[in-house]
Design a protein around this nucleic acid. Structure first.
Lengths: 168, 168
DNA sequence: CGACAAACTTAGCGAGTGCTAAAAAATTTT
DNA sequence: AAAATTTTTTAGCACTCGCTAAGTTTGTCG
């Protein structure tokens, strides 16, 4: 069932290699490269939730002028207690500045993160729709995908969406 | 910074709406829809690790005939103790059948999951490469992305990869 | 202004995933 | 076969993220 044994091989041979490369999962990567892939996913997971909270707080601030813990809880679909603990953590990490019983705000650092998350999110969403995915599905998928695309991929997605939008 | 205010708007108007839709994140979804999006991500997270383990065990079985806990640990980049506990859990969930101190095997259900994960993984990987992402990056991104794409998106990705491959 | 409702915080539980260290079983070497 | 090595398991710790329940603080309304 296994066939070729070609590690990475950059784009050069035009014809046969294309088809051969298709079944790329036929060969397992060397163990420690494999491990690095999973490590990357785990590491992405750690920041994922944080980014989601920061992004959401930023969105709320921008759209309604303030970000109350209640709203965050409602939109994240979690309890207020969970939000409270998370906010404390975001504060410790230097992303959120807040006073007890008051609206949440983002620090400089938090705003940077929010802006970047927001941009990334928008690109992925645009891209998915350009690909032909319906709005509702695109929104859900974007939420999950955005944290796992590298900048390289993101740039290609953006290019694709732009080309597609102006009808190339 | 904010501009238009148009909720979802299905695909109909051809020109202006396209550009207007670009800033789709300008409007927040209604709270409970928003919550559902995050819930979807959380729920994906729960199965993610499980799928990764099952997929990996399936790959090892296929490529080397057996799946030792040591190999799984090495490839996941995790301690053997972690694998042992995870295997017990996979067993309880009915995906893995194993006898103490012996190689791991997949149940019928486990094989189904592995096959599906494998296929999905392959599609995403192909797709990313068709998009122009280099091999190493594509592998990493695929690992993270595969768990978050709906079937609809997956199908569109596959179509795209196929078209691109035969030069459309 | 007092009372009620809403928002926020704190305390404590449960599940999941990572780790190290140490014991037990299996395998390989001598 | 005994010893050494490897593999697997178990035990116990840390951390994160859900939750509920119970208290505080704030804000509003009669």
């Amino acid at each position: 069932m296994a066939s070729a044994k070609m590690g990475s091989m950059s784009r050069s041979e035009p014809l046969r290699s294309r088809n051969a490369e298709q079944k790329a999962t036929d060969v397992l990567p060397p163990p420690e490269q494999h491990a690095r892939q999973y490590a990357a996913v785990r590491s992405a997971h750690e920041t994922e939730l944080i980014e989601d909270y920061v992004e959401l707080i930023g969105d709320l601030l921008e759209h309604s002028g303030e970000a109350r813990a209640t709203d965050v809880a409602a939109r994240m679909g979690v309890s207020q207690a969970t939000v409270a603990r998370m906010v404390r953590r975001l504060n410790e990490l230097g992303y959120v500045s807040n006073e007890p019983y008051r609206s949440l705000f983002l620090t400089e650092e938090g705003r940077r993160m929010a802006a970047w998350s927001r941009e990334r999110h928008a690109i992925v969403l645009q891209f998915l729709r350009a690909l032909g995915v319906d709005d509702a599905t695109a929104r859900i998928d974007a939420e999950g995908v955005e944290h796992h695309v590298s900048e390289k991929t993101l740039e290609l997605m953006q290019r694709f969406a732009n080309e597609r939008d102006r009808g190339t």
